[in-house]
Computed example of a mutant assay.
Amino acid sequence: MRKVVAIVGPTAVGKSALGLKLAKKFNGEIISGDSMQIYRHLDIGTAKDSPAELAAVPHHLVNICDPDQRYTVKDFQARAKNVIKELSEQNKLPLVVGGTGFYLSSLTNNLNLGGQSDSNSQTRKELMQLEQAGQKKQLQEILQREDPLAYEKIDIDNSRRLIRAIEVIRTTGQSILKQHNGQKWADFYLVGLTDDRPKLYDRINRRVDQMVESGLLDEAKYVYDHQDNFPQAKNGIGYKELFPYFAKKATLDDCLTEIKKNSRHFAKRQFTYFRNQMDVDWYNISDDNNYQAIIEQKIIKFIGGHDE
């Protein structure tokens, strides 16, 4: 059975650094689980690893699409499974780093996402028209009515996930959260990093400040100027909050405060999802300075190997 390690947790908690260390120790390669790091030219707001880090260890599902392309959980699942199978055949350890609970669940639970997605279907067209008209609330009401289970669990502020969930319930008659195909295809060890809330929020706030120093405004302006052609990127945290500033409707400080607030809220939602929906081995990075060594020992046991 293929062995896969996944590292989850809120932004700025140290997932990427841990992933790089584990990849080097265990002859592994990194698979990004992030739905935005796939896009070329969007580096700062998506918190990609640096060019040196990307070169130090092979990374997959990073910089594979242009910002005007759509990318679904089904696309992620198919690509990630292929990479995992290829790495396993090469006796390398696949390390899925970052990403949302639903993305990771599509892998660990081998979700059946309703067959080939038809972007020209009438249902998709109708739902896309609502999204383009800014009718997110109507999409939320449709999902709440047709699939209340998914409405309670998925990120209902994400229009594309609303659309996909509605498509699945209408196509299969089952909630997208129940689309298991019953076939276990890999063993997963899920490592979760977290921190005490005040420290975590401080980390998130400092991460946003660092992004600004690194050129976030220029990158967000690029997305703002192309928002009609960037259907997913324009909704990314770190970009959309700056649109009022570029439109001269808000101050920069107010917009940065909004980025920090939304980042903190997203971190809280993700922690709740992983804690309640998935079997994650959590480590509070402030509680034990030796947590990385403990994780390494557990991975050795998980993969059935021996420490050299």
Rank of each mutant, 00 (worst) to 15 (best):
G182Q: 02
N205V: 02
G173K: 02
G99P: 06
I299F: 04
D147R: 07
A78V: 15
R160D: 14
F230M: 08
L111K: 03
L216F: 12
N205D: 14
A186N: 07
V57Y: 04
E141D: 13
Q77D: 06
K234T: 05
F266G: 05
R160S: 12
M211T: 06
D147C: 04
P67K: 00
I237L: 09
Y103C: 04
L242N: 07
D43I: 11
Y283G: 06
S119E: 14
S119D: 15
L139P: 12
N158I: 02
F302H: 10
T172D: 11
K178N: 11
K137S: 12
V57I: 10
F246Y: 07
L216Y: 08
F266W: 06
N289K: 08
E126A: 15
V97F: 00
S32Y: 09
N276C: 01
T100P: 10
D307W: 10
S16H: 07
L149M: 13
D66P: 00
I237F: 00
F246V: 03
I299S: 04
I176W: 02
A133E: 15
I295L: 05
I299L: 09
K249V: 05
S16P: 07
K24L: 13
K85C: 12
I38Q: 01
K249M: 07
T251C: 01
T72G: 01
T108D: 08
V8P: 06
K240R: 10
F102A: 01
K81W: 15
L42I: 15
Q37L: 04
R70S: 11
E296A: 10
Y103H: 08
I31S: 07
K85E: 15
K221N: 08
T108V: 10
L111A: 03
K85Q: 15
F230T: 06
Q210H: 07
L177G: 00
I295N: 01
L217G: 05
N110Y: 07
L190P: 03
A293Q: 15
V5A: 07
S286T: 11
I176R: 02
K178V: 06
I166G: 02
D66Y: 15
N276W: 05
H60C: 04
L42S: 05
E296Q: 14
K260Q: 11
E213N: 06
F266N: 14
R206E: 15
L216E: 11
S32G: 06
V13Q: 09
E89T: 14
R164L: 10
S16R: 08
F188H: 05
Y71M: 13
M278D: 14
Y224V: 00
T123D: 15
V57E: 05
R2E: 14
A52T: 10
P244V: 05
Q297V: 05
R2T: 12
P198S: 08
S121Y: 12
G98E: 08
F26T: 09
N82P: 04
A55W: 04
D155L: 11
D187L: 01
E308S: 09
H306S: 13
I299V: 12
E146N: 03
L42N: 03
V57D: 03
Y222A: 00
